[in-house]
C-alpha cells in the first residue's frame, strides 16, 4: 500500500494496483486519442490561429498583389464588414429559411421512414438508401440539374408562365427563391438522418398509451413525438444551418447576381480573384465567430447534452 499526498492536498489512499490500473487506463486513453488529436490540432486548431493572424496582416506600401506582411491591422475587419455586411446577413437569412423549410419537409420524411414503415423493413431500407445515395451523384451535378430544370426555357418556368403565376419576363433561376430552394434541397438529408435516427427509437406503444389516456393524435404528437425527437431535430437543424450559411455553390450556380451573393462567394473571390488574403481571412473569421455565437445561444436555449 502506498500513501502519498496528491496534488489536490487530499491524502491519496489508493493501492499500487489501483494506481497501476488507473495509469494503464490513462495511458491507453492517451494512446488512443493522441494521433487523432494531433491531426485536429495541426490541421484544424492551428490553421484557425493562422487564419486569425492572417486577418491582421497589412499590405506594405508599394507591395505587389498578394504580398502581405504580418501586422496587427484591426482595420481589416472594419473594411470588410462595412463592405460586406449585407452578404453576411443574407447568408444567415437564407440559411435560416432553408433550415426551417428543410425541417418542415424533412420531419414527415423521417417520420414516414422511421415510424410508418417500421413494419416494412424492405421499403424502409429502400427509402433510407434514397436519402443517402444522392451524395454519390455529386451535389454540384444535382445543383446544376436544378439550374437547368428551373431555367427560363425549362418546362417548369414555361408552365408557371403559362398559368401566369410567373410574369412573362420573370425568372426562376438567378433569384433568392432558387438559391434558398437549392440550399434546402442540398442539406435536406442532413436534417432527415438525425431525426430518423431519433424517431427510430421512438416506442410507438407510448403513442398508444397516450391515445389510451384520451390524448388526441395532435396532442400526442406535440406532447410525445415531438419532444422525443427533439435531440434529432436539434442536431438536424445545426447540421443544416451551419453548412448552409457558409455555402456558395448554390448561390453561385442558382443565383449568381448581386441580390443573391452569399458570404462564402465573397470569401472565395477575395482569396482567389482579388488576392486579398487579410480581407478573406477576416471575413472567414467573422463568419466562424458569428456562427459559433449563434450556435452557442441556440444550444443554451434548446440544447440537450446528447449532442456534445
Amino acid at each position: 500500500m502506498t500513501q502519498t499526498i496528491s496534488k489536490s492536498g487530499l491524502s491519496d489512499l489508493r493501492s499500487k494496483d489501483e494506481i497501476r490500473a488507473e495509469r494503464r487506463k490513462g495511458r491507453t486513453g492517451i494512446y488512443l486519442v493522441a494521433p487523432g488529436l494531433l491531426v485536429l490540432a495541426l490541421f484544424f486548431a492551428l490553421p484557425v490561429v493562422v487564419l486569425l493572424a492572417m486577418s491582421l496582416y497589412v499590405k506594405p506600401p508599394g507591395a505587389e498583389i498578394g504580398e502581405f506582411v504580418p501586422g496587427f491591422e484591426i482595420g481589416n475587419y472594419m473594411t470588410v464588414l462595412s463592405a460586406y455586411w449585407p452578404e453576411l446577413l443574407r447568408s444567415f437569412w437564407f440559411a435560416l429559411i432553408a433550415t426551417v423549410l428543410a425541417l418542415l419537409i424533412g420531419f414527415p420524411m423521417a417520420y414516414l421512414v422511421a415510424v410508418r414503415l417500421r413494419e416494412k423493413p424492405l421499403l424502409q431500407g429502400i427509402l433510407l438508401v434514397l436519402l443517402i445515395a444522392p451524395f454519390f451523384s455529386s451535389f454540384i451535378l444535382r445543383t446544376q440539374a436544378w439550374k437547368q430544370i428551373l431555367a427560363d426555357e425549362g418546362f417548369i418556368a414555361q408552365a408557371l408562365k403559362f398559368v401566369a403565376i410567373l410574369p412573362a419576363d420573370g425568372h426562376l433561376t438567378a433569384t433568392p427563391f432558387a438559391v434558398v430552394a437549392g440550399l434546402t434541397y442540398n442539406f435536406l438529408p442532413f436534417m432527415v438522418l438525425p431525426i430518423y435516427a431519433n424517431l427510430g427509437r421512438l416506442d410507438t406503444r407510448l403513442l398508444e398509451a397516450a391515445g389510451d389516456l384520451y390524448a388526441s393524435p395532435m396532442n400526442s404528437f406535440f406532447r410525445i413525438t415531438l419532444p422525443m425527437s427533439a435531440p434529432g431535430i436539434f442536431a438536424g437543424t445545426l447540421l443544416t444551418f451551419i453548412p448552409a450559411a457558409g455555402d456558395y455553390v448554390n448561390s453561385a450556380l442558382l443565383g449568381n447576381n448581386r441580390n443573391t451573393t452569399m458570404i462564402g462567394q465573397v470569401i472565395d473571390s477575395r482569396f482567389f480573384k482579388v488576392i486579398d488574403y487579410p480581407g478573406a481571412a477576416a471575413l472567414s473569421f467573422v463568419l466562424m465567430v458569428s456562427i459559433l455565437v449563434l450556435v452557442t445561444i441556440y444550444i443554451r436555449r434548446f440544447g440537450t447534452k446528447e449532442l456534445m
Binding site: A41, F44, V48, V50, Y248, M288
Partner: peptide
C-alpha cells in the same frame, strides 16, 4: 471535446480558408 465539436460547427469555407492559410 471542444476540438472535436468545433470542426462540425465551422462552415466549410472557413475550414477551407484556414487550411489554405496554414
Amino acid at each position: 471535446d471542444v476540438l472535436i465539436i468545433l470542426p462540425l460547427a465551422t462552415p466549410e469555407v472557413v475550414l477551407g480558408a484556414s487550411l489554405l492559410a496554414q
